[in-house]
Design a protein around this nucleic acid. Sequence first.
DNA 1: AAGTGGTCTAGACCACTTG
DNA 2: AAGTGGTCTAGACCACTTT
Lengths: 249, 249
Amino acid sequence: MTSSSLAGRSGIPLLYREVKKQLIADIQSGAVAPGGALSNESDLAKRFDVSIGTVRRAVDELVADNILVRQQGRGTFVGRLDRARFMFQFFKIAARDGTREFPQVRLHSFARSRATPAEARALALQGAAPVFRIENILALQGRPVIHDHIVIAAALFPGLGKRMFEQRAGTVYELYQSAFGLTIVGADERVRAQAAGESSARLLGLSPGDSVLRIERLALTFDNKPAEFRVSIVDTREFDYVSSAQPTA
Amino acid sequence: MTSSSLAGRSGIPLLYREVKKQLIADIQSGAVAPGGALSNESDLAKRFDVSIGTVRRAVDELVADNILVRQQGRGTFVGRLDRARFMFQFFKIAARDGTREFPQVRLHSFARSRATPAEARALALQGAAPVFRIENILALQGRPVIHDHIVIAAALFPGLGKRMFEQRAGTVYELYQSAFGLTIVGADERVRAQAAGESSARLLGLSPGDSVLRIERLALTFDNKPAEFRVSIVDTREFDYVSSAQPTA
DNA sequence: AAGTGGTCTAGACCACTTG
DNA sequence: AAGTGGTCTAGACCACTTT
């Protein structure tokens, strides 16, 4: 292949940012698959016509964002959105004693319908665009604790069906990643307390009016583009939403 | 002063980690004050007998942790825990439309008493150690929204009194930093929904039993040592707890 | 003009994994 | 032994701020 070196330092586009963009493009195009290895650093340096240090800086940032994973002596890999990463990066519910456990997920409903105005706004969709609307019940320690309502744009998930969703091997985000080439890289969450509605109360074994936690999560893909809108109703009698912001070391 | 070079690469202590430790020690000892400038990078490199690149790596991490602030052309400074930083790093309550506003704080009670077992556990104190117990009411848009209950070990804040606390110029954490040399660098938070108690309901204008958010925050200083335990009761009828985890760019 | 941090380079050497 | 990432160095050159 012809070597495609990067922009020539004209409008001050930082070299390592350009390298980062290219690496992201490789992931989005499928040129490197989830779990697959990147070229080694000296080859990347040759390909982009920069020094190894510049490649390392670009990779450093992608590693900090949990998008790439380095393994000394082995290589650098595209991070899979597997259970371990989901627990680490996205699942913030822990038992009172701090114990964290991967939830047992049961599909409650799967439907194709249209976005409400609020959903369209969150997902940056035009009008009442077609969406998939999915409800899950998540159990911890054998008891239903979380009632999830997922909304995703149908246009981003061509061919998605109930069976495919239900019979996925790993996490929901891993399905997005492996079957639709859509990588969730971050999320904005808004949390508040409210009285449980009738449906959530029934599904979680509560009385209507009991206090529950409501989490709105907007999951984002590259460039902070919204990809999934999710409302989670959590019974916090025995579990907490945890958020840690500690210096690295 | 006699140059004190760092460990001689014996037990594989990473050089940049050692530099980082020394810079933190300078902050804790008061050798560089909050808001004050560090030596320039080449002087730091000489002092620690390492290359500038190694100094930069240490400073990079401290900047990422919001402990230092770089200003190109001016220097590198110890970050002050002022309002802007408090809003950015610690205050996670926002109006439904996303608006963020620094709260108006009113002292409700100030007392010296002893730690409960749970508080002693959180703060890593022995037995029923002496603590200060402070209640604040925080108002947003002119209405009381948050009822804070702060617990701090008396031993860490010698000479703290009600007047000093009430008449502080800036944020609570800035008082800790400037008057007691204690820098808050991070926090662990646990959030859940519960029915409002009598006291919080009265102070926030709610009916007992209304759903409120309960936030337990353990604020940490260097080495993740606990420094403050705080319970915040939040009226989330018009405000949310927000948590964002987006890639840097 | 002088001083600061910011980017990028080229290369030495080390630590770890695999064949 | 060969190949990978990890640390550290020394220095060029640029961008920004202050005097």
